[in-house]
Write a protein that binds this DNA or RNA. Structure first.
Lengths: 299, 299
DNA sequence: AACTAGTGATAGCTATTTTCTATTATAAAC
DNA sequence: GTTTATAATAGAAAATAGCTATCACTAGTT
């Protein structure tokens, strides 16, 4: 029989193990159970007839030969990926599978317009969407689960390249005739205590809004938070407070059937919408092309 | 999910297809059925979303992109093999799996002594033996089915390296008191017609013996042939003819309980025993070590 | 010493993937 | 117009990979 080669799976698992030095964690990173992972590592060891890891001590140690093999394994897997790249380069750009992460404060405002346009311009594109907060889509991207993410900047990210698409200005939003504020003539710092409503922690919009409105004291911020823009708007409509809404949301029907009015903030009160991908990704060209398709809404 | 890579299997199949330009033959070379093979190629095409082969015409043609991918695939598989090599280099030489091909006119005379010696010196060696004629073991070796072969030289081979181990002299063998020949004083060319018995075609011993005895005319050679040395000896014992026996066979019990006597031929009447492997094999060192273990019998 | 937490291995079962045999479809050759 | 050669398809069987639950071992703790 032909010489038995290690499988990609076994090598991927082993490389994960070398990185995490922990079976359980490496297994998790590979999205398999720990037993399945352990078995795969054992298979690899028995196939190569070599001990790759020391499990003697409390901690996992990769043997010397294990390290050498991990290095070569990375090479082999990279070669495999190059096969994919060659195949993809041969195709039209933006065709085939592409997984895009979008944060919840962008998705409902940009996607309804973007998706039909993409479908029309790139009919062979098989888009997979994942909506989650910045931290989560970033992690998924770095793990290779997502190809590219559409998020709001600034955001502290490492190992990425990004393209800034456009500014998204913040607007003050309050109920018409609010007892809290006169929208035509107000000073943030004169707002009553706890009258600024924001999204709950984890949403970058919370931080961006805070930074945009240049609030001095967190006392102005309500302890009550909303878990979605929709809820937030409902709270403002009930005059429980005021908030700051990104411009792209204004052109949606988020504020329809409410008594909320909005006023622009100062010109430098904005978040930036950006497309972000892993540094050195082989699909950079495609991402730039994709970026060109993403326009601020309603202009 | 993590980016799906092509499997080694798919790449191996595709490389075979690129070589044979024929689904059925490539499948056979991979030791799978044609449907399984076809399915694997289709899987690869669908995974890469690229057409690798043109099946339009009567003949299979690899597309341009297919050729590029085949090249990269060979790279990737070589990397995989290097993993195996690294693992093996780390082990003792002559340990783990080794498949050895031996021809039938050597195996019964050298192996009974060789195998116990190997088992003792290299207890971790897991030897797989295959006995067949030179042409066949050579083919199996070139296909990667066998690592190394033990055969008689000279033999026309391409793409191999070899190590000559020792000379194996031919001896005349005839029944004691044969009516055909006086073993103490004979001339080959005076032998009666069809009195030289040889193995059937395909056995290299037939050609080596013919060349060793320097026979002038094929008229001396019997039309009756034997398919094994044992049969040949029985025929000589029945005084149906004479033959030429390699020295290693004399020290076996092949001639026990027969009335056959043997006489050395001229000094330059010999075949050479050699160990042969694929050119550039990464296990060359081991093969040379193995060669050192193979001794002429009974000296 | 017994207990607990942490970690990797093992067992038994299920789901998925791969392969096989048999058959079909299609195009060229006689 | 049949025959031949070749690859694709269907459906069952076999092999592989995965999961949950559990065990076994080690190191600290009580």
């Amino acid at each position: 029989m032909r010489l038995n080669l290690p499988t990609n799976r076994q090598l991927q698992y082993f490389i994960a193990l070398e990185k995490h030095r922990h079976f359980g964690k490496a297994a998790e990173a590979c999205f398999v159970s720990q037993p399945a992972f352990s078995v795969a590592i054992q298979e690899l060891e028995s196939l190569l007839n070599v001990q790759l890891v020391d499990r003697n001590k409390k901690q996992v140690t990769i043997t010397a030969i294990g390290k050498a093999i991990a290095t070569q394994a990375r090479l082999a897997l990279t070669d495999m990926e190059v096969i994919i790249d060659i195949a993809r380069e041969n195709q039209q750009p933006l065709s085939g599978h592409l997984s895009l992460g979008v944060i919840p404060t962008i998705a409902p405002f940009l996607l309804p317009e973007l998706l039909p346009r993409l479908r029309k311009s790139f009919p062979k594109l098989d888009l997979f969407l994942h909506e989650d907060q910045t931290e989560r889509v970033y992690e998924l991207m770095m793990q290779g689960q997502l190809d590219v993410i559409l998020i709001a900047l600034p955001y502290r990210l490492r190992g990425v390249e990004s393209l800034s698409l456009f500014r998204d200005n913040f607007h003050l939003a309050c109920r018409k005739g609010s007892r809290l504020i006169d929208p035509e003539n107000y000073v943030i710092d004169n707002l009553p205590e706890e009258s600024v409503l924001l999204l709950e922690d984890g949403h970058c919009l919370r931080d961006h809004a805070l930074s945009a409105c240049k609030i001095r004291s967190l006392d102005k911020v309500s302890k009550i938070t909303a878990s979605s823009l929709l809820t937030l708007v409902q709270m403002v409509d009930a005059d429980l407070g005021v908030t700051f809404i990104p411009e792209m949301a204004l052109h949606s029907n988020l504020l329809k059937h409410t008594h909320i009015i909005t006023r622009p903030l100062a010109k430098n009160s904005f978040r930036e919408i950006g497309l972000v991908w892993r540094k050195g990704s082989r699909r950079t060209k495609e991402f730039k092309l994709l970026a060109g398709q993403i326009q601020p809404k309603g202009e």
